[in-house]
């Protein structure tokens, strides 16, 4: 069971075998996706027809169109990035305000508010999406009926996608920033204030540098979650689909290896982000 106790040979072998099989299960789909991004055939299926980079770079309007020349695809990546930046900005700012509120202030209903902040995590994304869609339409209808205002951003489209994703990513931002803030040594701030620093200067020179690693980590996580979100986005999207929704639509129609190429591109981008996050790891520990 544990190394300090005698383990029969068959159990050791079985454990090793299980771990290997499990890793195979985890990585097989990713390996397969990557391999067929480089197959010289119009469908991502065996047999192997030789190596090609066409699915990335080809620019033949009548034949193969690599991902970098597929305008619809590149546009959807750009859309995902724009949405991601807005969601990140909102989530980090609101998360920081929430963390400060919950860690430093006492007020009636604080317990209830901090529980309510967790609720978005247990609501299925699809339901977050439809409820926000219904509510926004109700407001839009009201404004239209009573004031003759047509409010574009309350109709399905990117602003609603941003709000939909933000509605639950803000919870995650709040949790991580609050955890970091709760370990902060308040005497440092008192010292700065005693020495005559203003509140703003204390915030800027003491608290923000302390929170910096957590802020960066939260921002990266928010961006990644936004980029990968599907359920909430699907319900709120208008005419300009982000990457996940576009990929989903194409997978329904029958995928070409261009989607594999995009996947390889995404994996590479995630790897860069992950390594970036991990390199901050040790620094975060030393504060």
């Amino acid at each position: 069971m544990i190394p300090s106790l005698p383990r029969p040979a068959w159990l050791r072998a079985a454990t090793a075998l299980y771990v290997a099989a499990f890793l195979g299960f985890l990585f097989l789909p990713l390996i397969v996706v990557s391999v067929f991004a480089f197959n010289n055939a119009p469908y991502p299926a065996p047999p192997w027809h030789g190596f090609t980079l066409d699915w990335f770079f080809a620019n033949d309007p009548t034949g193969r169109l690599g991902m970098f020349h597929d305008d619809e695809l590149m546009h959807s990546i750009w859309t995902s990035c724009k949405v991601g930046v807005w969601v990140t900005l909102l989530s980090v700012l609101v998360g920081l305000a929430n963390a400060l509120l919950l860690e430093r202030h006492e007020f009636r209903g604080k317990q209830a508010l901090s529980i309510l902040m967790l609720v978005p995590l247990v609501i299925p994304g699809v339901i977050l999406g439809i409820s926000i869609l219904a509510f926004a339409s109700q407001i839009a209808q009201f404004l239209d009926d009573h004031f003759d205002w047509y409010v574009r951003f309350l109709r399905p489209g990117l602003p609603l996608v941003v709000l939909g994703q933000f509605s639950y990513i803000a919870t995650i931002a709040t949790l991580t920033l609050r955890a970091r803030l709760s370990r902060f040594d308040r005497t440092l701030e008192d010292a700065a204030l005693n020495l005559g620093a203003s509140r703003a200067a204390t915030f800027r020179t003491i608290l923000l540098p302390y929170l910096r690693p957590a802020l960066i980590g939260t921002a990266m996580m928010s961006f990644l979650l936004s980029f990968a979100d599907f359920n909430t986005t699907l319900m709120l999207v208008g005419g300009s689909p982000p990457l996940t929704v576009l990929m989903y639509g194409r997978m329904h129609e029958g995928a070409t290896p261009v989607l594999n190429a995009v996947s390889v591109f995404l994996m590479a981008a995630s790897a860069v982000l992950a390594i970036g996050l991990m390199r901050r790891g040790p620094r975060r520990a030393s504060g």
Partner: peptide, 27 residues
């Protein structure tokens, strides 16, 4: 870490992998 890696990649990509593996003409 190995257990975490697949989850850094969007569900759409992972599902694409399963489709390529399992469909009739698949791997």
């Amino acid at each position: 870490l190995a257990c975490m890696i697949p989850f850094w990649i969007s569900e759409t990509v992972r599902t694409l992998g399963w489709m390529i593996l399992l469909r009739e003409t698949g791997v």
